[in-house]
Amino acid sequence: MQTGDPMLELMGWLLKATLQMATPLVLTALGGMFSERTGVVNIGLEGMMLVGAFSAVAGTYYVGSPWLGLIIAVIAGGALAGAHAIVCVKFKGNHIVSGTGIILFGLGSTTLGLQVVWGKQGLSDSVERIPEVVIPQLRDVPMLGTAFGSLSPIIYFMFIITALSWYVLYRTPFGLRMRAAGEDPSTLDAAGVSVEWTRIVGVVLSGALAGLGGAYLSIGFENAFGKGMTAGKGFIALAALIFGNWTPIGCFLAGLFFGFVTGLQFIFPILIPELVTLTNLVKILPYALVIVALAGIRRSIPPKGIAVPYEKEVRV
């Protein structure tokens, strides 16, 4: 309830906004990580997010349950990533070319899809959204209530998926294979594991996670799909991936940092109303902070085998 100190409430809200803005970024960045750690550059994340966001709403509309919509979004994102995987891994195409193709296709097809499914331009009908998880005991606590009282379940998924990604990548044989496919594919091949399949699985996983991130935007956070609604979040996720140095924990922290600075730009004009004429400059702040932070922290070192198509050695 709005009984607490407004300043305290605002801080609580900042925490919540951080989580809300970070969730799609973290999920998509983790997806990108799976792709790039196996050696396939994936700049098509934006397109996969859009397709995920769209199919979540379309699926919910057709089937009637947002949970099934979520699953459909994951499948659709994975399917689009499958096309990327076929082009990049099977046909050894240029990863960036294919990625830009995916982005363009995602942008165009989802907007057309609005017309196919609803006969509308630009904005879909509203559908049921995924119900939020409410913690009644926490909700009346002044600051924490605002922050954690009522959150979308996908935000909790985000934490679980981060932990799971870390475990899979560093503690399972499959994760070892993935890392090997990105760092030193010939060793992996010598060990008798198919580099191609490891990479394909990595790319499809990335699409599935990006689809989940997009679905969070459309049916977790909002309740409809609008043309181009991801508004560049796929690219920001790509930046978060690089910022996080291609590790699960790094992606998670980078996503939270991006979410935090985005939330910060909403807080400033409320605290200092005089800034209203400087709104556009305040909005630069998050971007500037990211550059400063990244320049101050460390060098970014991508996986060694990235963007290099693996050619099996052929004995004649």
Binding site: G47, F91, G93, V97, F105
Partner: peptide, 25 residues
Amino acid sequence: VPLEMVRVIQGLIVLFVAAPRAIDW
């Protein structure tokens, strides 16, 4: 026909051009 159709055409062409080996196949 909306301009998005052009975007889809662009996207698909780029996607297909990325895979020159498909023609061998």
